[in-house]
């Protein structure tokens, strides 16, 4: 284990370099550019969010970085490795509920260690550590069906953290949750991220969530998905959800919304046009 996750500080050394990534779908006249010349870095220990309206290619970007979509142009580099398949140093948390319903919480969390052949007592110890970290210590023996949506998502996060990935990659992990749960889970994420100095890349369409959690925010344009702007969030750390009430927070939200509104309305106009085209055909 090359676990340097104890006290390393954010350094200039990028953990991941995303360089001129392009992804097109379809062929001929039907071709759609989902991701268009996207470049940015994620520094060691940094929390970066990618935000944009539906249809900005966020999920495509997630799949590329996660290695689930191997066929793309440009490069996503971790160290000197170009990602074209799932990378062992990248841990993914999915938007949909992804716990295994046939495993208890602790069996879920220990799952990656089981694959690595870690001895049972050790993997239970390590799983326990991360379950504790996400605040589910008293639910280890429960099945996911006995937990709320927010708790299940925490199980997924613990399951991803347990193999101590260099980069934590999350795709709208709180999309299915209500706003209060989302804020509180945000606190948990911030706390864990600072505790582990965990390099994190979050894909989201939620503005407050992005500002609450991030060091930097990459704003994407609506189709084709380009980088519109990268915003540094200079809110103090350690940070809690209290920050949501601060003036600075409101300022950032307003500023990014300014960019985002334009893109979101283009997206809305597009889907309305598509709907009217469909009804004209049908």
């Amino acid at each position: 284990m090359t676990s340097d996750s104890t006290i390393a500080r954010p350094t200039a050394e990028p953990a991941m370099v995303i360089d001129d990534v392009v992804k097109r779908f379809g062929r001929g006249a039907e071709i759609v550019t989902a991701v268009d010349h996207v470049s940015f870095n994620v520094a060691q220990g940094e929390f970066v969010s990618v935000i944009g309206p539906s249809g900005c290619g966020k999920s495509t970007l997630f799949n590329i970085i996660g290695g689930l979509l191997g066929d793309y142009e440009g490069s996503v580099m971790i160290g000197d490795e170009r990602i074209s398949a799932p990378h062992p140093e990248v841990g993914m948390v999915f938007q949909e509920e992804s716990t295994f319903p046939w495993r208890t919480v602790i069996e879920n969390v220990a799952f990656p260690l089981e694959l690595q052949g870690v001895a049972k007592s050790e993997r239970m110890d390590r799983a326990h550590h991360f379950i504790d970290m996400v605040g589910l210590a008293s639910f280890e023996k429960n099945y996911p069906s006995q937990l709320s949506g927010g708790m299940r998502q925490r199980v997924s996060i613990a399951r991803t953290l347990v193999s101590q990935p260099k980069i934590l990659l999350m795709d709208e992990p709180f999309a299915a949750l209500d706003e209060q749960t989302r804020l509180l889970l945000g606190d948990k994420i911030t706390q864990i991220q600072q505790q582990l100095n965990q390099t994190t890349l979050l894909i989201t369409h939620n503005l407050t969530e992005a500002v609450q959690l991030s060091d930097r925010i990459v704003v994407m344009t609506y189709r084709p998905g380009k980088v519109k702007r990268i915003v540094n969030i200079d809110l103090p750390r350690p940070r809690t959800s209290d920050v949501v009430g601060s003036d600075a927070f409101g300022h950032y939200v307003a500023e990014i919304w300014n960019d985002l509104r334009e893109e979101a309305s283009r997206g809305m106009a597009d889907s309305e046009a598509a709907a009217s085209r469909r009804s004209a055909h049908g």
Binding site: G67, P86, V90, M92, F94, S98, F111, P112, L115, S163
Partner: peptide, 22 residues
């Protein structure tokens, strides 16, 4: 569910692990 298969893929599971464990 597709997402469970994706969990497996993200963990680089072999196809026999994928079958028996997911």
């Amino acid at each position: 569910r597709k997402v469970l298969v994706n969990v497996g893929r993200s963990l680089n599971m072999t196809s026999s692990q994928m079958f028996w464990k997911i």
